[in-house]
Simulated scan of single mutants.
Amino acid sequence: MGPPPITLESAKPYIGRFAPSPSGPLHFGSLVCALGSFLDARAHGGHWLLRMEDLDPPREAPGAAARILSALEAHGLHWHGTVKWQSKRTPLYEDTLQQLRKQGLLYPCYCSRNQIRQSGGHNNSRCRTVNPGKGTCALRLVCAGGEELFLDIWHGEQRQYIRDDTLLKRRDGLYAYQLAVVVDDISLGITHVVRGADLLETTGAQIRLFGALSAAPPVFGHLPLVMGPGGRQKLSKQNRAPAVDNANAAGNLCTALAFLGFHVPASLAQEMPETILNWAATHWQRHQVDRHNRQLH
């Protein structure tokens, strides 16, 4: 059994963030997420940081990072401070692995994906049984078992069973998403994580890692996903979702606000992005957000 549910609000000043990966340009689904996190931070008098999650070079698209930054600026979504690049923060990730190793919470894993799939999951005892102990290895956190409880801003109380030991470093030597995102959120003092609902199921494992690092987790809120044709998959870079048209920033913002559940005056579509965002920040109410994933109509 995990700890009691985490309260929704933090006593610290609000620090939020948007953390895209440069695997493609900013599409409409990403714009909805960026807008929601931006407005929640602004409406609560907080700071909104931008972190580029560029830790997986094989998945990066040439020029994508610059296009994402340009699109955010065109839509008036200006961040505080400088862009944080994960590729420049690897010493911090390595130091964290050393810390976990000293605590006895890190172990090498030689299991293939097929072995993990056939065994029905992954934990330390099973890994010790099947590991040959040769060749390149991944690194995993000893954490499987028990539940993590937390309150999501839009989805309420969540109970997530931690079935697997979390992957922190891949066999190809790249740092895993779960490690980098938690270490960065701790380092940057993030108090609120507002992101897409596709990441809701990863939250319990992240909270478990926050605990292993003796850090309080942020408040989490998961926004609705914009679904693609047929409604079976979310719009994504992997599914070649088209880039937002920067020349239609006002229209894009109004459409994104409507998708989130806000009744936008028709006249706003003729205004500059800054005017639209000022209106939206004034009218932002969390309870108005429609949390259901759906297609854009």
Score class of each variant (00 low, 15 high):
Gly24Pro: 06
Tyr107Glu: 05
Asp185Thr: 15
Asp290Met: 09
Tyr93Pro: 05
Trp154Thr: 15
Gly16Pro: 03
Ile6Val: 14
Cys33Gly: 12
Met227Ser: 12
Arg42Lys: 15
His27Ile: 04
Val289Ser: 03
Ala249Met: 04
Asp290Pro: 11
Gly45His: 07
Gln115Asp: 00
Ala180Gln: 10
Pro57Glu: 15
Cys254Pro: 07
Phe18Pro: 06
Ile153Cys: 10
Thr275Cys: 08
Ala34Met: 09
Thr90Asp: 09
Gly146Gln: 01
Leu188Tyr: 13
Met272Cys: 09
Leu100His: 08
Glu201Ile: 13
His283Leu: 08
Glu53Ala: 06
Ala250Thr: 05
Arg101Pro: 06
Leu49Arg: 09
Gln99Ala: 15
Cys127Thr: 10
Glu157Tyr: 10
Pro224Trp: 00
Leu213His: 13
Gln295Met: 15
Tyr110Asp: 13
Val289Thr: 08
Gln178Gly: 03
Ala247Leu: 10
Gly81Asp: 11
Ile186Asn: 12
Arg17Gln: 08
Leu77Val: 08
Tyr175Gln: 04
Arg208Leu: 05
Ile190Asp: 09
His192Trp: 02
Gly133Cys: 11
Asp172Arg: 00
Ala197Pro: 04
Val183Thr: 13
His222Glu: 04
Gly104Asn: 09
Leu223Met: 06
Ala71Gln: 12
Tyr14Ser: 08
Cys111Glu: 00
Pro4Lys: 15
Glu148Lys: 06
Gly24Asn: 04
His155Leu: 10
Asn252Pro: 12
Met227Trp: 07
Gly63Arg: 05
Trp284His: 14
Gly228Lys: 00
Gly146Tyr: 00
Ser30Cys: 07
Leu92Met: 15
Leu209Phe: 02
Asp172Gln: 02
Ser119Val: 03
Gln285Met: 13
Gly81Val: 11
Ala212Ser: 12
Ala266Ser: 15
Leu139Tyr: 06
Gln178His: 12
Asn114Trp: 12
Trp48Pro: 04
Ala241Leu: 00
Gln115Asn: 01
Ala65Gln: 10
Leu50Ala: 11
Thr96Asn: 11
Pro22Phe: 01
Thr166Cys: 00
Ala41Met: 06
Asp95Pro: 11
Ser267His: 08
Asp165Ser: 00
